[in-house]
């Protein structure tokens, strides 16, 4: 029984990383209409930046996380301005942005490889709270607890921002139709920048926490998050933060449980089959609303 509970916690912690990744990915997709293949590299670079902050500047854990999050956000904005803004100005469709995001992915992914010397690095064990907690015979690590709390806080914050603030209304307006939003007095440029930053920051948070708890700071960090985070977006629906977060956690639990009780070689198959099933049977995700299609 305690094994089951421990694995449940492991699944929640792993899923929280997917969730953090997914809410940013979904936000960009819903608001800016971009399928951003470079989203995973923000996580890798955030982890690299946080590691540098620890090793070069000797910053403590909370500040290092902050550095990583800021780095992820800044990178999100930079990629948006360099790779997406020129296309946006021209009114090119989603395909062009997908290609430039692939280009950004190739560049950032390979530069991340150069930055880590093609190696996988890890945070020094004394640079983060690395202990184990024992509650009634159940063991879990402090980092797992921190990851789950961070995910809950980010999801709640993002949800309140998107659904219950004036700014969120502006975001949704831009996501629906940019010109129309501009007509009613929303400044699309500000919305674009803020969305890109928030998405990059969420991915960055996933990167730093994931880089610490899996002892892996390298380009593969972002790639691993990318595939599963993408699945979470599809299952959860991209236009609702809660859906993406819930789906991320559920996928994490499913992954851990299917490895423990079914088979590791079928683990990813189960995840992706579920993904495809959702796409075909419920293509708007768990909380998906109605779509606006020109008749």
């Amino acid at each position: 029984m305690s094994l089951f509970v421990e694995q449940l916690i492991n699944g929640c912690a792993l899923g929280s990383l997917y969730a953090l990744f997914a809410i940013g990915f979904g936000l960009v997709f819903a608001t800016l209409g971009i399928l951003n293949a470079a989203h995973g590299t923000y996580a890798s670079w955030a982890a690299i930046a946080a590691l540098a902050a620890v090793q070069r500047l000797g910053l403590p854990f909370p500040l290092a996380v902050l550095v990583g999050v800021a780095a992820g956000g800044a990178l999100g904005v930079a990629v948006d301005q360099i790779a997406f803004q020129p296309l946006r100005r021209r009114g090119a469709g989603m395909l062009g942005a997908l290609i430039t995001s692939i280009a950004a992915w190739i560049v950032l992914d390979n530069l991340a490889g150069v930055a880590t010397g093609q190696d996988s690095l890890s945070f020094p064990t004394d640079s983060y709270p690395g202990g184990m907690l024992h509650v009634g015979g159940i063991a879990f690590s402090t980092m797992q607890l921190i990851t789950i709390i961070a995910m809950l806080a980010a999801t709640l914050g993002m949800h309140l921002l998107v659904r219950h603030s004036r700014f969120g209304a502006a975001m949704r307006a831009v996501g629906w139709k940019e010109q129309a939003a501009a007509i009613v007095g929303v400044d699309p440029r500000r919305v674009v920048l803020a969305t890109a930053f928030l998405a990059g920051a969420a991915s960055g948070l996933a990167g730093v926490l994931g880089g610490i708890s899996t002892a892996n700071v390298s380009y593969s960090l972002g790639e691993g998050l990318m595939l599963k985070g993408f699945a979470a977006v599809v299952v959860g629906g991209y236009d609702d933060v809660r859906g993406a977060a819930l789906a991320g956690v559920a996928l994490g639990i499913l992954e851990v449980m299917s490895a423990q009780y079914v088979s590791t070689s079928l683990r990813d198959g189960i995840t992706y089959a579920l993904l495809l099933g959702f796409l075909l049977l419920r293509p708007r995700g768990l909380f998906g609303g109605t779509s606006f299609v020109r008749a």
Binding site: L3, Q7, N10, A13, L14, T214, E255, S265, D268
Partner: peptide, 15 residues
């Protein structure tokens, strides 16, 4: 069992 591309090993270690 784990897969070569895996990055999270907390669950396998627990198992």
């Amino acid at each position: 069992s784990v897969l070569t591309a895996d990055t999270d090993f907390t669950a396998p270690a627990t198992q």
